[in-house]
Design a protein around this nucleic acid. Structure first.
Lengths: 346, 346
DNA sequence: GCGCTCTACTAGCGCGCTCTAGTGATGAGA
DNA sequence: TCTCATCACTAGAGCGCGCTAGTAGAGCGC
């Protein structure tokens, strides 16, 4: 590392002590503080000329409303808290959708991510501390007990996770339907040796696993059922590939836990010289935008991220407005997107 | 979409009006509010037994300190604001590093992302509203004028962007060095027809473009210099591929704007049946963790995200502590990582 | 001229916390 | 016995804003 002194004026600017407040604006504009407040809240009761003058002054002295003070003073914060895993590209899709909808309904969004050194409870605590009026959790992995408890204290919407018997709202896709579509399609192509890399404790994993078993049985393929343990990261796909490559023969098709898992699997198969889809068909899950980046278009089960995000925000807002309405479960239909990683068996 | 009523008790729990405050804890514990405050701030001046009792009571009634009130009352918020682009996987790497370092130095982090419907100024406004003590901006694209102005009002650290003559701190890699390494390597492999897809107005793009030209000249390859306009998304790589495939012959090597661009390019080349690296060598930039997910290991210029994130936080904190110190520019050395997308020319 | 409404504004409390300046009790030292 | 320091704790101001209650003045009908 090298360090250089920048060529600027040698200082980042001595800020004159404190940041400007509403009173500063009021004084400079020659009105009361209350009127400035009213104007910044876009409330009626000020003349257009005063309004304009106040905005002008505010801009001049660099005034920005203080969220903390605003939050403290008003009962409402008009803020939704979103917990996500920043590594997860599907969550990026969801976040974009949430922002769009939140804008529409007049809410702010505060993000809080889990990272390896920061677990879900810490991420949630941060949101609660910020007085978010509702929490939207993307694929939470914590215990149902924790979620239930949390939802007793705050409006909570779980995305991509069913919490049976819980008192919280949830928005997710019909996992079973997606898996069934994938299996039906593979069977129709002629596959029988279809295995599943599962998502461990990840959101939807249990449902997908169960649905895989059911779909296989439905096609009379119970004896071919095989689940390799995994999770929702690329790593698990790579490890599964190692396992499979160490065996006498490969299955003809693999149903991966999600897109990331599928990508890991594809990478490892490619390195081993295994041709996809000629030798093995691979199906992902999520259809996160990265799925399209793969050299080969990944066949995957599409989840409508835009709609999921939109509904999550809408549900959260409705829950805020009627805290005692019955808990709801919104289920979207997934859709198999056949691309280039699947074909008839060898 | 289907909607079901969850099987829970039909309510997300009637919260008893308002959340518990410090006064509630104080009253229940039979002490003053000030003492509770002191205990929660981990300040000296309370006996161990009282401390324990207060924590016990707080837990019982579910008290959590209110960030807004805390922020308002104290001059310090101990919070750093991070602006990022949630779609950018390299930013995810950086965020993880920032959290780790912030934890170490006792700061909180608030994230604010740009999305298509939310530009950088809005993202920054949100952070300022939260009274972040310093702003860390990942690859900001706004005008230098805006950044300079902002840095006069708040401590600002720009990551992956040089702002010449500015009054803000910056942390980035030596773009030129990375590009030079890549060109040197390609030339050594025997390439002469090396083109560059540039990153438009993206962070570091101008430096990389300039360095590409310089490196080519240095090798006596000035006549081969060619820059295809692009940006930092997969899309630009795909479009560049279209351009190249429409011509008589392909270059033997392509230096992409960044990894995402390289991935888009690789995908499009693959679809067109062009073999990499046999027919074309491709080099990325960033070495974001996704680079490893590609079926083929992407040859790329490695940027040390962990170190960049760590330094960004450290620089921010130092700037907070001495606002009038000279602005600094921290430059990390990049490192070419040769993997599977490059080889000798055809 | 009176009461009325309506517009454009102001006064001032309180949100939940931090933090300075205290207070009373206890014990040590002269 | 009288300071004086120390410990454990408290009173109360104030952070920047939202919001309710209220006011002054203009305009209007009768």
């Amino acid at each position: 590392m090298t360090e250089q002194q920048a060529t600027g004026d040698g200082s980042t600017g001595a800020r004159p002590g404190r940041r400007p407040t509403m009173s500063d604006v009021a004084e400079k504009a020659g009105v009361s503080r209350a009127l400035v407040s009213l104007i910044f809240r876009n409330a009626p009761g000020a003349s257009d000329s005063t309004r304009e003058r106040v905005f002008q002054v505010a801009k001049e002295i660099g005034y920005r409303p203080d969220t903390a003070a605003r939050t403290l003073a008003s009962s409402r914060t008009k803020t939704l808290g979103v917990m996500l895993t920043i590594r997860n590209p599907f969550h990026a899709d969801l976040v974009e959708a949430c922002y769009a909808e939140a804008d529409r309904v007049g809410y702010d969004i505060v993000l809080s991510t889990t990272v390896p050194t920061r677990d879900e409870e810490r991420a949630v605590d941060a949101l609660v501390g910020h007085r978010c009026e509702a929490l939207i959790l993307f694929g939470p992995k914590t215990s149902a007990a924790y979620l239930t408890q949390l939802s007793r204290e705050h409006p909570v919407v779980a995305v991509s996770r069913r919490v049976p018997d819980a008192t919280l709202d949830s928005v997710h896709t019909a996992e079973a339907k997606g898996v069934r579509q994938a299996v039906d399609y593979l069977v129709k192509e002629g596959h029988r040796d279809i295995i599943h890399i599962d998502g461990g404790t990840g959101p939807g994993a249990a449902e997908r696993r169960k649905a895989y078993r059911a779909a296989m049985r439905k096609h009379g393929l119970a004896e071919w059922v095989r689940v390799i343990p995994g999770n929702h990261t690329e790593d698990s796909g790579m490890r599964a590939a190692e396992v499979l490559l160490g065996e006498d023969s490969l299955p003809t098709a693999v149903l991966a836990a999600n897109d990331r898992c599928a990508l890991g699997l594809l990478g490892a198969l490619h390195k081993a010289g295994v041709k996809v889809p000629q030798e093995v068909s691979v199906v992902g899950y999520d259809d996160s935008r990265v799925a399209m980046l793969s050299h080969i278009g990944l066949t995957t089960v599409h989840q409508n991220a835009d709609e999921l995000g939109r509904l999550a925000v809408r549900t959260a807002v409705e829950r805020i407005e009627s805290p005692n309405a019955p808990a709801r479960e919104l289920v979207l239909d997934p859709e198999l997107r056949v691309r280039d990683t699947t074909g008839p068996p060898r």
